[in-house]
């Protein structure tokens, strides 16, 4: 479980996050939704310790990370998996080396055990026979799956995803969403996903935080979205004709 309370983050004089509070629950897919520029990525980077909030606290199962140095966060970071928007795979390494990398850096397994683990993770994300391909040789959807395999290879307690299905076709996007939800349930991870894709919200939104202009405007589950009367949320979620029709029918 990750608990954040009154997080304020500013860049120069511009306040991007304004007293955001929320609890990301373990074993659930926690979604952070909001328009582009609403502060989702900044919030995610604060959770990852890449940005230091001006005030507030971020608590990972009893460990407060605000104000901690990189050295003090090292232990925690080994329990974190991250899927970046573009995958952030290392260009100079092939698929196998990318997934193997965290194991080489932090595990004490033998080479055979490491390779077994890599193959297991690649199989788990439905990727086989691609071990020796480089990131430039695989599709966007495959890159995302390799990134997920790399993120889970160390059995993390916390999984963060920044718009994991952006730029993907609806079919592949749904595959990725389902995969993330399955993995979350299977390993009992605390998963935080940044998205503005409404399909993802309705598909896997077990706990949702809606941010608008840096403020926590609404929180609930995907079922609550339909019945919510929050004007900001309604304007955001039901902006497309398809979702308006769904709402009318429901």
């Amino acid at each position: 479980m990750i608990e954040i309370k009154n997080i304020v983050k500013a860049f120069a004089t511009k306040e991007v996050l304004k007293e955001v509070s929320f609890t990301f629950e373990q074993g659930k897919t926690n979604l952070v939704i909001g328009q582009s520029g609403s502060g989702k990525t900044v919030l995610l980077k604060c959770l990852l310790g890449l940005h230091e909030p001006e005030s507030g606290f971020i608590n990972f199962d009893g460990l407060d990370i605000v104000g901690k140095s990189n050295k003090n966060l090292k232990g925690l970071r080994k329990q974190i998996g991250m899927v970046f928007q573009g995958g952030a795979l290392f260009d100079s390494m092939n698929v196998e080396q990318n997934v193997l990398y965290p194991l080489q850096m932090f595990s004490k397994l033998s080479k055979e055990e490491m390779l077994q683990r890599v193959n297991f993770c690649l199989k788990r994300v439905n990727l086989e026979n691609v071990n020796h391909l480089f990131p430039s040789e695989i599709s966007g959807g495959m890159k995302k799956r390799v990134a997920i395999a790399r993120a889970i290879v160390l059995n993390p307690k916390y999984l963060f995803c920044d718009e994991p299905n952006s730029g993907l076709d609806p079919y592949t996007a749904t595959l990725i969403d389902n995969l993330l939800q399955e993995i979350t349930h299977e390993y009992g991870m605390t998963t935080v996903i940044n998205t503005h894709d409404m399909n993802s919200v309705m598909e896997i939104g077990e706990k949702i935080l809606f941010i608008k202009e840096g403020r926590n405007v609404w929180e609930g589950t995907k079922a609550d979205i339909i019945t919510s009367e929050n004007q900001h949320l309604q304007g955001f979620v039901f902006s497309s004709e398809l979702f308006k029709t769904i709402k009318r029918k429901s």
Binding site: K78, I80, M82, F84, G86, A88, D91, Y101, P102, M105
Partner: peptide, 18 residues
């Protein structure tokens, strides 16, 4: 520079690698 703009350096940092 390319590693920075494609978030590969951020990925290292998140993993706990300096």
């Amino acid at each position: 520079g390319t590693m920075r703009v494609t978030e590969q350096i951020d990925a290292l940092e998140v993993m706990g690698v300096n």
